[in-house]
Nucleic acid binder design. Structure first.
Lengths: 342, 342
DNA sequence: CTGAAAGCGCTTACAG
DNA sequence: CTGAAAGCGCTTACAG
């Protein structure tokens, strides 16, 4: 691409117009205290009149930092981009960076070539630090960036790279969900699990077993299915065929829970009176089922805030061994698990 | 944020290791032809050994361009970000920029403060040109950027700012949809319109009237509703109550069309035999209704490509008066409009 | 509090 | 084809 067509106003011109040196003008913009009120005023006025905008490239080069942070996310049409949690996370990160006066720049590489170009870009001084989602291929990128001295923090656990990360405590979430059912007085509690390969989902199942074990209950009632509504419906039908005394079901996702609720209601079980149903994710749909669905909310906002704080801490001088932080999901109690009337 | 902790390898070091001058080394990386094979080889080797990554900030400063393009999009949790067309558009833009060797950086300002900071950033030499979606508040930003000599292209028509844009021809799309119904031999054709305030949607209605007028048909059968499924269902019920001879309905959205289809089927009308139904948007749901839904596909990919091409053209030296390009939607014929058996 | 000066890491006419 | 040199627009010790 060609250069900018219109010559930009430079610091030099502002300084001259204000009758001070370039150094003093620079100090005004960097918010330095060592400037007289008088100098500050005339520089501000000159800058305003000339519509001065500092050249960030020059600033980055001279200062050795850019005051901006790169955020590397999945390619736009991938399932991860469409995940409803993604916008919430991005927003939380944006807010936190903004509060610290940092510019957020988002990158969504779509090919290996894109990833290579991006590495050059991120390592090339355009960015002071990088946040990254734990997607395939990003492990290697994070290692290379760190080797160049650029702080990196992952959202979600990396596949093995020695990099700091913040992850959601899915196991704790599964435990929380199950404990809630136990506290409601339910004893015969089942779990509808998702596909075993999905790590986050199998961790929720671990949490289920943890809580059942702690409560001294048997956790033998487990059925698996796809994470969607149909998967939940089918699994619930199998559970009902297996065991007549089910008092509660914890489902690995809200969509599954909606399906399970339907399967139970179709055969005449009342929710929550006969069977309590618990979801996971706290999607919008949880509020509109009948009865409304108790769920576990992914603390995505806290995740974003933690990632940013961690990154800022890593930008301080000194050594920064990889850290890991887990944020705990929050219980959202609605109608499907409380108010047993029988 | 602090400066990078690890000192970066510089061009100077590479040049020295390769036994050439900095100028020659630079020429190697810029792909200049005026370099001997021998020099090229030794520079490449040295760069590889030292793991050299050029400092982009310095490059931007010296060359007056950054080889990257900013894309300004809605804030992550806004409805626009969640619009299914958005990822497709972003992806198309990313592909086209990538094909031209340009880095795409995405910005999603969340507040007025963010917009101000972003203006400084974009105007500060970090980016050569800017693509922007036609969202509230971006008109003013685009004008200020252009005043600084930065090429800007909008996706969607701006609210009045003198800026180049690419928009989807919704009116043409409405015409295309209606003409398709006429060509299928339908005469008594109705339209289910969306809210009048939604510009894109009222343009589709214009297209409906255009096509009916050209075909010499009366376009008196119009009902309005919300853009969702329920809106379509209600409007269809009203249409059926008003007029018994309806042969076809063009709906302003696929969701409405799904509702309309349902309302017609419930009272015993066969689709497409009795009534042909046409949607708009070509969402995934169009493929799974029974019968599958004919629709009009928004040419988002072409929009992204056009935007990028226009931007590249504007980056050439010389004057560039604002241009406007409309890309025409594409007819997608499925079962709901063809194969009338009676 | 202020200014002259060096320097950040690159590009690019210019002269050879 | 190559190198010495000027310059891009800023920051920041340093000396006053």
């Amino acid at each position: 691409m060609e250069a900018l067509s219109r010559p930009a106003v430079t610091l030099d011109q502002v300084a001259r117009a204000a009758g001070v040196s370039r150094a003093t003008a620079s100090r005004v913009f960097s918010g330095s205290h060592a400037v007289s009120e008088e100098a500050r005023r005339s520089v501000d006025r000159a800058a305003h009149e000339l519509r001065y905008v500092p050249n960030r490239a020059a600033k980055s080069l001279a200062a050795g930092r850019s005051e901006s942070v790169g955020v590397v996310v999945p390619q736009p049409t991938s399932p991860h981009f469409l995940d409803p949690l993604f916008p919430r996370l991005l927003r939380a990160i944006g807010e936190e960076l903004s509060a610290n006066g940092l510019q957020m720049a988002v990158f969504a590489p779509q090919s290996d070539v894109d990833v290579d170009r991006l590495e050059q870009y991120l390592a090339g001084g355009h960015v002071d630090a990088v946040l990254m989602l734990n997607l395939p291929g990003f492990d290697a990128l994070s290692v290379r960036l760190q080797a160049r001295g650029i702080p990196v923090v992952f959202g979600g656990r990396p596949h093995g790279a020695p990099v700091s990360f913040v992850d959601i405590d899915n196991r704790g979430g599964g435990r929380t969900a199950t404990e809630h059912l136990v506290e409601q007085g339910r004893r015969r509690i089942a779990h509808i699990a998702g596909p075993r390969q999905v790590v986050a989902v199998s961790e929720r199942q671990q949490g289920f077993h943890d809580a059942m074990w702690s409560a001294g209950l048997r956790s033998d009632l487990v059925e698996q299915g796809e994470l969607d509504r149909d998967g939940g419906e089918l699994a619930m039908s199998r559970l009902l065929a297996r065991e007549d005394q089910i008092e509660a079901v914890f489902c690995a996702s809200d969509a599954m829970a909606a399906g399970a609720m339907w399967a139970a209601q179709v055969v005449g079980r009342r929710i929550p009176d006969d069977i309590a149903i618990m979801g996971f994710d706290d999607l919008p749909l949880a509020a509109v089922t009948r009865p409304s669905l108790s769920s576990v909310r992914q603390p995505v906002e806290r995740m974003g805030h933690e990632m940013t704080r961690m990154l800022l801490a890593m930008s301080a001088p000194g050594a920064h061994p990889p850290q890991q932080v887990y944020v705990g999901p929050e219980l959202v109690v609605r109608e499907s698990t409380v108010g047993r009337s029988c």
